Amino acid sequence: MTHARFEDLIAWQKARVLAREIYRVTRQGRFAADRGLSGQIQRAAVSIMSNLAEGYERGRASEFHQFTSIAKASCAEVRSQLYVALDVGYLTPDEFGSLMDLAEEVGRLTGGLRASLERKLRSGA
Rank of each mutant, 00 (worst) to 15 (best):
G29V: 02
D34N: 14
V25Q: 04
A103G: 14
E104C: 02
Q40G: 10
G36D: 13
Q81L: 14
A53T: 15
M49P: 03
R58E: 03
Y83V: 09
A73R: 14
Q66G: 05
V25K: 03
P93T: 04
R79G: 06
F64K: 05
V88S: 00
Q81Y: 05
P93S: 12
L99H: 10
Y23A: 04
M49T: 07
G107C: 14
G89F: 07
D87Y: 06
Q81C: 09
L91V: 06
M49I: 08
R43T: 12
R35C: 07
R20K: 15
S80V: 01
A76Y: 12
A76K: 08
I70S: 04
S80P: 02
Y90V: 02
G59A: 10
E105I: 09
L82G: 05
F67Y: 15
M49F: 10
L52T: 03
G97C: 05
A103K: 07
R24C: 02
S69W: 09
A85F: 09
D34Y: 12
G89P: 09
N51H: 15
F67V: 09
R79V: 00
E54D: 10
F96M: 04
S98H: 06
G107F: 08
M100R: 12
Y56K: 14
L86A: 02
L82E: 00
L86P: 01
I22A: 05
G39H: 05
A45W: 08
R43M: 01
E54N: 13
F96K: 04
E105F: 09
S38Q: 09
F64D: 06
V46M: 12
F67P: 03
Q66A: 13
S98Y: 07
E105T: 14
D34S: 07
D34V: 05
Y83E: 02
M49R: 13
V84I: 15
L86T: 01
